[in-house]
Simulated scan of single mutants.
Amino acid sequence: MTAQTTPKPTESELEILQILWDKGSCTVREVHEVLEKNKDSGYTTTLKLMQIMHEKGLVARDTSSKTHIYRALVNQEKTQQHLVNKMIDNVFNGSAARLVMQALGNHTASKEEIDSIKKYLDELSNQ
Rank of each mutant, 00 (worst) to 15 (best):
V74R: 00
T108G: 10
H82N: 09
D89C: 03
V31Y: 12
Q127R: 12
M101V: 11
Q76G: 02
T79A: 01
V100D: 07
H107V: 14
H82D: 13
Y70T: 01
P7C: 01
L58T: 04
D22F: 13
T6I: 01
E33S: 09
Q102P: 00
L99K: 00
H68L: 01
A96G: 06
A3V: 02
L104R: 07
K86V: 10
L121T: 10
Q81W: 00
A96K: 06
V28L: 07
S110C: 13
P7F: 01
K8S: 11
T108R: 08
E13Q: 12
L49V: 04
G57S: 04
D40R: 11
Q4D: 12
E13L: 01
L47S: 11
K37T: 14
T2Q: 09
K56C: 00
E30W: 05
Q102W: 03
K39R: 14
L35P: 00
S25P: 00
S95C: 11
L121S: 09
V84S: 06
T67M: 05
L47R: 14
Q51G: 00
D62S: 06
I69K: 10
T63H: 07
E112S: 15
T45H: 12
Q4I: 01
A97I: 13
S64V: 05
M53F: 10
G94E: 02
V31M: 05
I117S: 10
L58R: 08
R61F: 00
M1I: 01
V100M: 15
Y70W: 12
A72N: 05
G57D: 03
K66R: 14
N75I: 02
Q127I: 00
K119W: 15
A60Q: 03
L73A: 01
K48Y: 13
A96Y: 02
